[in-house]
Design a protein around this nucleic acid. Structure first.
Lengths: 330, 330
DNA sequence: GCAGACTTGGAAACCGCTTTCCGGGAGGTC
DNA sequence: GACCTCCCGGAAAGCGGTTTCCAAGTCTGC
């Protein structure tokens, strides 16, 4: 592996000069030497050793992103947004997937800390587990004590800059829109009770119904994914409208209905949450609450990089999008 | 930021001993000292500086993955497979997205080389551009000359270990299956001519038709994504069966037909390629050629890490899956 | 033509960790 | 009890860069 010293030797200059030429220093280097060094580097195929640079400079140009599952389009969109933003800043991205294991999330944070990454993005719902949250906060504190920066997409539970989707409000607005269409009997495919995102959406929906004087919805818990929605849909009793707390679950529910010959929206209306882009061609088109996922990812990165001291929490509103999967009641 | 020296001082031992205790050396350390060091590390919240470790050890525990677009479920699945495999090896993953710009791919490779990552995975179709391929190969050669390992998912054009989907063969088999159903007039939504994956699938399909003595299909080029399929579908003249060279394009085509009131499969049959998992609930269910994407990603990582000298190219067969989107001709 | 200010190149300290090389003490053997 | 191993702790030499500090020019201005 060719080192800076090799280049310096070949160019007949000192290490310092070679470094200044090749790795953007403030100091000027004369045109003649500069050219010699550049030629030598090119001939030798020199690539700076970033580990060494990071060590010497005491600062890295890498950021870390921790998500639950990259194959879930929700996280893919968020990660993509953040990665594009990182690319424009000239930062490299290290991605970790936890597959919904909070311990993994803590472990990744520790590893990214060890890597001395410039910033860490924790993307995805928090869990309602005091112990886990406490340990994650401790790990985060250590990382920040060492100069690390962090931001979160999800709930404001970590004491760091946060991009927080307005889950309660979005679900409430959706509930009102569905009630407006004449629905009165609802079911909620609510996901796992410990997932704060799921719980918030469920609660926001139920509260709005309550305020409208409508009966409480049937609440069915289960996994937060397609199969969870599929399974939960089987347990719906007599609702005319089913709210799945995310789009992927809604798609699972739609599949379950299709298999059973239940027509959507004629026999039952179905709504989701997130407005996943990949699903835009789904039949029937899904009523949902749109979240600007890419922007949220990008914004989280900005917040993390931002030097300002006060912790900022940005609420991101969702927009109800009514589509074919719900109908107006007669 | 707390360093190993701080820990050693606090524990009252030498740097060497602290290092041996905390960072898995072959050398044994006495129980008493070991405990002292561990306690000190814990109290101080020590995290090894991986940049320093990488430098000292001359080997990193990071791998790089370069994909075109993470929000495309095809790449998400491949990346996920590779990342899971990496996680079991205790490796961290740096992800770069090129958004289909070959120059970006080269640039990322250079950067990952600078990072001295243990291995690089180049995931995605090669392009039919001699110049770009040559420069990529040069960059690759430099990286490998420095001890870097690399593998590719796509076409065997780089002289490195490759997991190569059997695009021609899969498309040919699909063509035969569709001909079997009685179709004779085909169109191919062929994607961009310079994308080797697209070109191979198109060619394999056309060749098979030719061998069967069927008329040549209408070939329509365009972008390799959903909107490309949507647009290309408008140009189909009088085929009874349309082959989109990937699933996302097929979905775009289905959307176009739906908008125009053309029924699938009654009026026209549509098939895709890849068998994207996220699309399994699409209506109508998509006929396609299944590729084991996660396995391919994982396998590519294995190949990259494998020390063996000879370059291995593994062809991965696709499996034709007939579903609702095609019909048998009367 | 010369003092003083600027510029530019090089020597060397340092970033935080790993690992080789030594040395001293404990344990085993005859 | 003398001799030889074996085991374990510490000192110090890197790993490949960056950057400070000097010294030697090169310009300027008068």
């Amino acid at each position: 592996m060719v080192t800076l010293e090799d280049v310096a030797k070949q160019a007949g200059v000192s290490l310092a000069t070679a470094s200044r030429v090749l790795n953007g220093s403030t100091r000027q280097v004369g045109a003649a030497l500069r050219a010699r060094v550049e030629r030598a580097a090119d001939e030798l195929g020199y690539r700076a050793n970033i580990a060494a640079q990071t060590l010497a400079r005491g600062a890295s140009n890498v950021i870390g992103i921790v998500v639950h599952d990259l194959t879930d389009p929700y996280f893919a969109a968020l990660a993509d947004g953040a990665m594009r933003a990182a690319a424009t800043e000239g930062l490299l991205v290290m991605v970790g997937t936890t597959h919904r294991d909070p311990e993994q999330e803590i472990a990744y944070l520790a590893t990214l800390h060890a890597q001395r990454v410039r910033a860490v993005l924790l993307v995805g719902s928090r869990v309602a587990d005091q112990g886990v949250t406490k340990r994650l906060r401790e790990e985060l504190a250590r990382y920040q004590a060492g100069g690390g920066r962090a931001a979160c997409v999800g709930q404001d539970l970590l004491g760091v800059d946060t991009v927080a989707p307005a889950n309660r409000e979005g679900a409430a607005e959706l509930a009102r829109a569905l009630a407006e269409l004449g629905h009165t009997k609802f079911a909620v495919l609510a996901g796992p009770p410990h997932l704060v995102t799921a719980a918030d959406r469920c609660a926001g929906f139920a509260e709005a119904l309550d305020e409208l004087g409508l009966p409480a919805p049937q609440i069915i818990h289960g996994p937060f994914d397609r199969d969870g929605g599929h399974a939960a849909a089987q347990q719906v009793r007599d609702a005319t409208c089913v709210f799945a707390v995310n789009d992927v679950m809604a798609v699972g529910a739609l599949a379950a209905y299709r298999e059973r010959g239940v027509r959507v929206p004629e026999d039952v209306s179905v709504a989701g949450f997130d407005d996943i882009v990949t699903l835009r061609d789904h039949v029937p088109a899904l009523t949902t609450v749109r979240l600007p996922l890419k922007d949220m990812g990008a914004r989280a990165l900005e917040l993390a990089l931002n030097e300002d001291d006060p912790v900022v929490v940005e609420k991101v509103a969702g927009e109800v999008v009514l589509r074919e999967s719900v109908r107006r009641m007669a």
